[in-house]
């Protein structure tokens, strides 16, 4: 037993919060996207921390799956960003305004 799990849990929570804040406030799709990755990393850290204190491998396996999901999400997400950019490139509108109330 070394570092108390609380330290890691708080760290992860803070990381999650920073990610969420970024996602809610940033206006660039790519950076919002990175913020999602931050959040997922916070989750990973949480899982690993619990996994260590339970001596249960399950948490680590879950982290593994989260990473796979993150990779899949990135693949598709960046594809969407590229698709949007292709549409928008010619018009140089800096906001997505097609869909509004």
């Amino acid at each position: 037993m070394s570092i108390p799990i609380a330290w890691y849990l708080v760290l992860a929570a803070v990381l999650f919060g920073i990610g969420a804040f970024g996602l809610l406030t940033k206006r660039s799709a790519l950076i919002m996207f990175m913020c999602i990755e931050l959040m997922l990393n916070a989750v990973n850290l949480t899982f690993v921390t619990f996994s260590r204190s339970f001596s249960d491998i399950g948490g680590q396996v879950t982290v593994f799956f989260v990473m796979v999901v993150a990779a899949a999400e990135v693949t598709v997400g960046l594809g969407i960003v590229v698709a949007v950019f292709r549409k928008r490139a010619s018009t140089s509108v800096d906001e997505l305004t097609e869909l509004k109330d």
Partner: peptide, 14 residues
């Protein structure tokens, strides 16, 4: 995309 130098792909934040 060269987004670092040009206009960004943006969306409305939540």
């Amino acid at each position: 995309l060269g987004v670092d130098r040009r206009d960004e792909v943006r969306v409305d934040p939540l």
